[in-house]
Design a protein around this nucleic acid. Sequence first.
DNA 1: ACTATCACG
DNA 2: ACGTACGTGATAGTT
Length: 880
Amino acid sequence: MAEKLVLIDGHSILNRAFFGLPDLTNSEGLHTNAVYGFLNIMFKILEEEKPQYLTVAFDVHEPTFRHKMYDGYKGTRKPMADELRQQVPLMKEMLRSMGVTVVELPGYEADDILGTISHLAEQRGMQVSVISGDRDLLQLATEQIQIRIPKTKKTGTEIENYYAKDVLARYQVTPKEFIDVKALQGDTSDNIPGVPGIGEKTASALIAQYHSIEAVHEDAANVKPPRASKNILEYWDQAVMSKELATIILDAPVVYDFEQAKLDGIASLYTDEAYKMCKRLEFKNLLSRFEHADNAKEEALSFTILDNEMIANAFLLNLKSGFAFAFTQTETGIAISIADGEHLVYIPSTEQYEEQKLAAAFADAVIRIAKQDETAVFETAEVKKTLRYLLTHGISLNPYRNHFYDRTIAAYLINPTIGDYPYDLIAKDYLGQFLPSKDELIGKKNHEIETYLCHEANVTYRSYQLLLDRLDEMGMMQLFREIEMPLAFVLADMEQEGILMDKETLQEYGRTLQVSVDALESRIYEAAGEKFNINSPKQLGVILFEKMELPGAKKTKTGYSTSADVLEGLKGSYPIVADILEYRQLTKLKSTYADGLSNFVEADGRIRTSYNQTITATGRLSSTDPNLQNIPIRIELGKQIRKVFYPKAGCVFIDSDYSQIELRVLAHVSGDENLIEAFREGKDIHTSTASKVFSVPFDEVTTLQRRNAKAVNFGIVYGISAYGLSQDLGIGRKEAQEYIDQYFATYPKIKEFLDATVEDAKEKGYIKTMFGRIRPIPELSSGNFMTRQFGERVAMNSPIQGTAADIIKVAMIRVHDRLIQENYQARLLLQVHDELLIESPENEKEAVIALLEEEMRGAANLAVDLVVDTQIGKDWYEAH
DNA sequence: ACTATCACG
DNA sequence: ACGTACGTGATAGTT
């Protein structure tokens, strides 16, 4: 078999990739789509062809010689997009890091380099594949030289292949004749004039007949059509020059060393340097290629596995302060890093050394050190995980919580808008180190759980001071130490506690729903005249707005909108719409709540959510698996679900929620006397607002006026916009603006505050809550109007939502601690943003209510009182 | 993996 | 001319 050379037209393929892929950026903000696409095309080709040689050719941008720019993507030339230009040096760096030969030649185009090298290779008896997006290269095709043109399609990359015979078959001219076609036809993008009046069709036909422009010229008298006949004579000089321009040079003075271009298997491209670069550019898909390569890519992290009970125990007994640890629940084991990774230790639990024993020995070590050294700090990746693990073995570290540090919480406070803080990201951002990610280590092929855990521990240890310094600089030390860290312990206890759920009743409820769903389903099919999937917005949209021709069709980018606010307007006139809305409601209740929650009930009859403390941009918590912060309440049928949440024997539920906490925070931070006064009067705030805004006595406020005032109050908190308010109230934008103006006239300092907040945020790039929590708002400096508007609403909302979140967190810690310190059996179970649910023994309830309300009210000292409403019940339905 | 929808505050 | 109310998570359908 002949040896094979793959030649890539660098700019052309980069250009193809750039336009064929959506804009990708890495977290540094570098545009990466073209580089990514290039590598994908290159790897695909290499895997297919397994060549012995590989070379990429680039144009050198020397304007004096450049009669054309990059390969023909579009007929008209625009300057290269900035986002693409930036990627050219990245691409070259990537190729260099892979050891790929890159050829550039001043004064010549990439085409000429490709032509010359492929010609050389052919003379040596090699097979050549030239990869380009440019059809001009088809003139190079021979029996040995194949031109391959990749096309990015929905289904992936498809490649058109041309040997000389394929060119003839497709274009009815030989590769050499292709030059002559172009000489006649011209190419504006390449500044080739051609012959006026001869276009694509005529040019091809003439060359197919005469085989060269010279032959056409000679027989000009007989050439049809007459316009071509005339012009070939008149513009002959121009035609000759065009032919010259269109001809790719085959003997450019390229210095080319075949030995250097040798490719020692595809795996030889997977170098350490290339791996790091893929990591930096965040090419997650490509990284997997590196793992499958035989040669190891990482300096191995060295650590010791202590799987012997005696040795592990001895180690734990000798442990002194100054370590970081990490662990995971599935493959139970603990990784400990001491003294900057010099002593990385992984202790797995085994059949001999059971989890229970390991957990106890580990906790003993922590407690011993904490008692010996009051400055000792235990650095964890995610402390709540560790705490849950220990709690399942009956161990609580609550008394020692001031000794703990949580890397993920620290990173979250520094930038709460990311949502995910894996160790490899922390290592990159704070240590400038590129580590394999968790997925790479525990992927399909690798099962290096120990390595993963040791990286966790090591990164935690080594980034500790850097993160802490950053928190200090940003003024968030107190927030971190006094709120977020203690809260993690509170949340661990709440999660571990869980909440009892009557699974039988819930399932019965589900069966009842199903009966109604079935009935609705057949009625909908009947009205529609056919069966279809009601759950498919696509199918539903077609049925309603095409087949049944309902009015008011609103389009989304995928089809018709069938959302509730569209259907709501139609349900009066079309019974099928009312049925669909009810069907939606019932199936939602069935799938998400009846079926969904049932699956989470554990053996002890309790259901345990997970609180995520590091996900929201504002500082709120979120709840998952299952989400217990969105249990239905607004509609009675859904609210029934709350009856299956019940307290254990001898206990009741005590449920307290803050009344209008966000508006109270707003009154405080704005200092608006009128709003403060309204709260001090203690009357219904929406009615009071209506009374002031519409200048009517309090007792004469109509329900409509109250409803409007309430909507405006919400709007203010969300970062008011006339459009948003008009949508909510179903009124005109102008009218909505009038409401807003009247509102601001009533509460002038609120407007001042909101304006000042936005202004400040624009200047600083972030907002701050009362407790010092920050949220960056990069949207404010966007060039896009809509994005900027969004940034302004966020700037108005976040300090309010965030401060309210801070306040309830303080309350949670205080309530939790008092319940324990004062020896109550009652326990905090749930938090729902402005609401706390406690399970309390009957005989404690009065005291616990008093305690709960006291701590919730006292969590912050505002210009207005924090008012708390409390209810007691035998289930969550009654208690809220 | 993304989109549409809808549950909560 | 533009076209969204703020913050989440789960499910089903589609790609």
